[in-house]
């Protein structure tokens, strides 16, 4: 084989950079999306550094201070204290860890499992498609929170079991989404071209189909992050989420329920944290949809 001696040009990233800056410009057009992104960024930073910055780290670990029960919000205790005299500000801040981590884990597991099932079903079709999709339909018919509660109750409490329980109810939605997108992309001519080149199903799915359907998946994932956090909190609220000393927004809210309305601050601040996180991820998801998936805009 004769090789011409040539110097290869450097991989030129300017085109990619330009695409990013154009996408960010479109994202900025909606100030709500920017607010969503900002809150999400702040939440992530808080979750990462919370144990280091909270004023009462010993309360997070389970220490109590019964002398200071039910203190209203003040300079020392910004969010007041609860029935055990623990600083609510510290608990809510650290509680973001469980919510964000399990929300993210649920979405990632759901995408991985749903993506595999949906891609295989959509690409191969036939009886494989029928079998996988009927299984998916079966799971979709069961109300997701009830199923998650049943699974979590069966597995026992604990953060990992809770994540598994929610993931089981969430992957079917991704399987349907990804199957539909694969069915559309499968008919594109560049797929025929890849087949004519001799590419196998693994390469066609991985290199040609999946990179082209990533946008709707990212949009759905960011919208779902909010609902995942809400579901985690719901399980915590009904008492099958995280075990006691670990602070979690749903559990905090659930314990505070008995002290309403006199000690309103014990319920208000965890509730507000849930509200803020769900809202922020929804705003972010809406903004991402405008950028990545403009045709889906309502």
């Amino acid at each position: 084989m004769t090789m011409i001696q040539t110097s290869l040009p450097k991989r030129d990233t300017s085109a990619r950079l330009e695409n990013w800056s154009r996408a960010f410009y479109r994202f900025r057009q909606s100030w709500l999306s920017v607010i969503g992104l900002a809150i999400v960024a702040v939440l992530i930073v808080i979750a990462l550094v919370a144990p280091l910055i909270v004023p009462y780290p010993e309360h997070v670990a389970g220490a109590t201070d019964t002398a200071a029960r039910f203190m209203p919000p003040s300079a020392e205790h910004w969010f007041g204290t609860n029935a055990l005299g623990q600083d609510m500000f510290s608990l809510v801040l650290v509680g973001s860890q469980v919510s964000l981590f399990s929300g993210l884990a649920v979405v990632i597991i759901a995408i991985a499992v749903g993506g595999l099932v949906g891609a295989v079903a959509g690409y191969f079709g036939g009886w494989i498609d029928e079998t996988l999709m009927r299984l998916t339909d079966l799971l979709l018919t069961i109300p997701s929170l009830i199923l998650a509660m049943a699974v979590a109750a069966a597995l026992g409490t604990g953060i990992l079991n809770m994540i598994i329980a929610i993931s089981i109810t969430w992957w079917p939605a991704y399987a349907r989404l990804i199957r539909g997108e694969v069915l559309v992309k499968k008919e594109e001519q560049f797929i025929t071209a890849a087949r004519a080149l001799g590419a196998g199903p693994g390469r066609i799915l991985g290199r040609h189909i999946l990179p082209n359907i990533i946008s709707p998946v990212v949009v759905k994932a960011s919208l779902d992050m909010g609902f995942a956090i809400l579901t985690v909190a719901s399980l915590g609220f009904v008492g099958i989420g995280v075990r006691a000393p670990v602070p979690e927004w749903g559990t905090l809210l659930s314990t505070a329920r008995g002290y309403m309305p006199d000690y309103w601050w014990t319920a208000l601040f965890p509730g507000f944290a849930i509200f803020l996180a769900v809202l922020a991820f929804n705003l972010l998801g809406d903004g991402l949809r405008d950028v990545l998936d403009p045709k889906a805009r309502r």
Partner: peptide
């Protein structure tokens, strides 16, 4: 698969037959 290397095709629609997410280098190297 071996035969496909020797028998190739150029498609009608140059807009649809190239993967929009791949660079020219990756398309031709595939």
């Amino acid at each position: 698969r071996r035969l496909r290397a020797r028998l190739q095709i150029v498609f009608q629609d140059p807009y649809a037959s190239l993967n929009p997410r791949m660079t020219i280098h990756d398309i031709v190297a595939e």
